[in-house]
């Protein structure tokens, strides 16, 4: 391994459900393993528009991702998929 492991890039896909626009929205990201995930979340929200980071629940491996986590911490690998689901409110 001549590459520093902390600078390894991975490619992940964020799949959202934006039903009002019809269909799902997939956004591909290239992210360093050591980059906190809030950067990815913010970037995703910028891409989608309309929503803010708090409106989404980012789920990977059935777990809610937290903004300060890094891909390395949650064992994310190249090609993994993150679900971006809108937080639900109801009575």
């Amino acid at each position: 391994m001549d590459q520093e492991p902390t600078h390894k890039f991975i490619h992940v896909k964020v799949v959202g459900q934006v039903s009002s626009l019809g269909g799902e929205l997939e956004v591909f990201f290239r992210i360093k393993e050591s980059t906190p995930l809030w950067k990815l979340m913010a970037a995703y929200c910028r891409r989608i528009g309309m929503y803010e980071v708090q409106d989404f629940a980012f789920i990977f491996d059935q777990r809610l991702l937290r903004p300060h986590q890094t891909p390395k911490q949650v064992h994310m690998e190249d090609g993994d998929v993150i679900d971006a689901l809108l937080n639900q409110t109801g009575s």
């Binding site: 708090q54 937290r66 949650v74 937080n87 639900q88 109801g90 009575s91």
Partner: peptide, 27 residues
């Protein structure tokens, strides 16, 4: 905890009467 649930203080608002429950609280 790897499976921990995060709620922020705004989420607690949804426990007030006649407001909608949010998924963070549910989870």
């Amino acid at each position: 905890d790897p499976e921990c649930v995060e709620i922020c203080f705004q989420d607690i608002d949804c426990l007030a009467p006649e407001s909608f429950l949010t998924s963070p609280i549910m989870n």
